[in-house]
């Protein structure tokens, strides 16, 4: 069984996630992770979590966005290392560096244009079929979100 080797240099990720230092590489988290279970390229010997923690540039690994924070790894970790929190921080870094999947940047654009992650036009077509009143774009809410985006440093990236 491959041993989970964590790069314990005080790099950015370990500085921000002190809990990783208590990880003693038991791989219990991998056994319960749905990504390792179902995604073909991963298995118990070479799990999603292992690959992320061992990578030179973990934020470049697109697969970190497969993590939906089901927190099975958090529930099962005997050391309370909270891998999910690490993945959220990795996602953030990958987003800032322009390495996140393009859908994420598109969702941000949609949100900052209509304050929803769905297209109001398409939603209204579906709503009409169900006999519901239309959703109207709230201009004030959109403006407020754009101010928040600026003040919190939310990066925007043009994608096709």
């Amino acid at each position: 069984m491959k041993v989970l080797r964590l790069k314990y240099e005080k790099n950015e990720i370990t500085k921000k996630n002190k809990a990783i230092e208590v990880c003693f590489k038991c791989s219990t988290c991998s056994k319960f992770c749905p990504i390792t279970q179902h995604v073909k390229k991963y298995n118990l010997e070479d799990s999603f979590i292992t690959q992320l923690f061992e990578a030179e540039k973990p934020e470049a690994l697109n697969d970190v966005w497969m993590c939906c924070a089901c927190e099975k790894c958090v529930i099962t970790c005997p050391q309370d290392a909270n891998p999910t929190e690490v993945f959220t921080n990795l996602k953030e870094k990958s987003y800032q560096e322009g390495l996140a999947p393009s859908i994420v940047y598109r969702l941000v654009e949609q949100l900052l244009q209509e304050s929803t992650v769905y297209s109001i036009k398409f939603a209204n077509m579906i709503r009409k079929r169900a006999g519901l009143k239309e959703v109207k774009k709230n201009e004030k809410a959109v403006k407020e979100l754009n101010v928040l985006a600026e003040k919190t440093g939310l990066e925007r990236k043009e994608v096709n």
Binding site: W65, C67, C68, A69, T88, K91, E92, S94, Y95, Q96, A100, I103, V104, L107, V108, L111, S115, T116, V117, N138, K140, A141, E144, L145, L148, A149, K151, T152, G153, L154, E155
Partner: peptide, 25 residues
């Protein structure tokens, strides 16, 4: 007046400060 919550998987991963502020709003 509500906006997207925002979602705890992708928008949280984009920027946690923005995520918290929008939820707080």
């Amino acid at each position: 007046e509500f906006t997207c919550c925002p979602d705890p998987i992708r928008l949280k991963g984009a920027n946690q400060y923005f995520w918290m502020s929008t939820a707080a709003r």
